[in-house]
Amino acid sequence: MSSFVPGLQLSRDFYTEVVRPLVAGVPHSAALIGAGSEVLAFDTERSAGRGWGPRVVLFTAAGLAQEVGEAVGRGLPEVFGGYPTVSGGGSGVVVADPGEWFAGRLGFDPGRGVGVLDWLSAPWQRLAEVTSGEVFHDGLGVLEPARAALRWYPADLWRYVLAVQWRRLAQEESFPGRCGEVGDDLGSAVLTAGLAREVMRLALLMRRRYPPYSKWLGSGFARLSGAAELGDALSRAVAAREWRERERHLGRAYERVAALYNRVGLAGPLEAPVRGLSGRPFQVIGAGRFADALAAAVTDPVVAALPPAGSVDQFAGSADVLTCPERCRAVTRAVLGL
């Protein structure tokens, strides 16, 4: 039997048994949020290495972080739960000012409000990291309001991001068949895998879940209730050996997300079955219809005026961009004209 303890439980116990007594009498908030597979509950025994162990982000009032951090550092045991409390040159307790910590992760402080640029320049992975995990104690009264503010997009921005995601399907949905028709089976397979990825992200977005980055996308998708048939269709499409079979399974997947679109009800209902592409022997869902309907339902003039590029995840795929808030904000301003 495995003795592995999930990182969230380990860190909760670490705070309760070790950290909290060390800061008794000091106003603070404490949580396990931010980077780390344990924050999204994707950690396994394989995670228990490379600095993995008991961790707490401890928030204090402005100007106290250094003093509290030094006091906590002196009181930490070397080991907790069988794991070192200091690893890779850093402590298992990070002490920070709340506004500075959020700005460092996202590029802005949600305690001061969240604007259009803030929403669209924040990568989905980062938004998932700060709204997942667990708050162990919120004595400062700042973490829960900040997390609530970031829980999900405002309605019109949700429509906008979904419209762009549907448009990504519209741009390539006929291409696996076209590649297959000219004998480019590798190209057809690669395009099918890419479309499957976009469908997974679309399904997560429609279910109000921030899609995690590539390593955890499949795991996050698999947690969606009621997604078994959609997952089966996508798996069969990716595993198919011939373009017509890929097209058939992709069609099943498209019909599932089209039905989900109608249930979500952010725009007027549309017919869900796949149909032939005009003048060509390929079956498509006509994803542009869904993008257009969602865009037309946006009432906020600022959001309605945005170019159809979406959030930073939808037009930038470089990890060197998506892990740097300053770069995310710079490219988002440039692409969207904000």
Rank of each mutant, 00 (worst) to 15 (best):
S91T: 09
S318Y: 12
A96G: 05
W158Q: 13
G92Y: 05
G183M: 10
L224K: 08
E17Q: 15
S174M: 13
V303M: 06
G276V: 08
A35I: 03
V39T: 08
L143Y: 00
E17K: 13
P54V: 04
L195Y: 06
R207E: 14
G90F: 10
E173N: 11
H137F: 14
A258L: 09
V274K: 02
F136Y: 10
Y254G: 05
L270Q: 04
S121C: 09
P84M: 08
G111M: 02
V182Y: 12
S11F: 01
P325D: 13
G88F: 07
P269W: 06
G90D: 12
A259M: 06
Y83R: 14
L306F: 07
S188E: 02
E229Q: 14
G7L: 04
R201E: 15
L127P: 02
R74C: 06
A259R: 14
S37G: 07
L306E: 07
L260F: 09
V257K: 03
S3W: 07
V93K: 07
A305N: 04
A258W: 05
R241T: 11
E271N: 11
E17C: 08
G180T: 09
F221D: 03
I285L: 15
A61D: 15
R280P: 03
C328S: 11
P281M: 08
E70H: 06
G288S: 12
L169R: 10
V93L: 06
F42Q: 13
P176H: 08
S188P: 03
R223A: 13
F102K: 01
G49Y: 07
D320P: 01
S214P: 15
L224G: 05
R252M: 13
E198A: 12
R248S: 11
Q283L: 14
E242A: 12
F42C: 07
E38A: 15
Q66V: 14
L250P: 01
D313F: 01
G286W: 01
A239S: 15
V116T: 15
C324T: 12
F102I: 03
D13V: 06
A96P: 03
G183A: 09
T16P: 01
V284T: 12
W216L: 05
S132I: 05
G7E: 02
R147S: 00
R12L: 11
G268W: 07
R197Y: 08
G226L: 08
M200R: 15
V182W: 12
L202W: 08
G73M: 05
L157K: 02
A189E: 11
S11I: 02
G90A: 14
L217W: 09
I285Q: 13
D320V: 11
A163N: 08
G73E: 07
V39K: 03
E271I: 04
R256T: 06
D118H: 14
V86C: 12
D292V: 13
E326Y: 06
R168T: 11
L234K: 03
E198Q: 15
S37D: 04
S225N: 09
F282C: 07
E247W: 00
V164N: 05
A297V: 09
A96E: 15
V284S: 13
A31N: 01
V274P: 00
G317S: 14
H249S: 09
P110C: 01
G49L: 06
P176M: 08
G317H: 14
A239W: 06
R46M: 08
A30G: 00
A222C: 09
V130Q: 01
W119E: 02
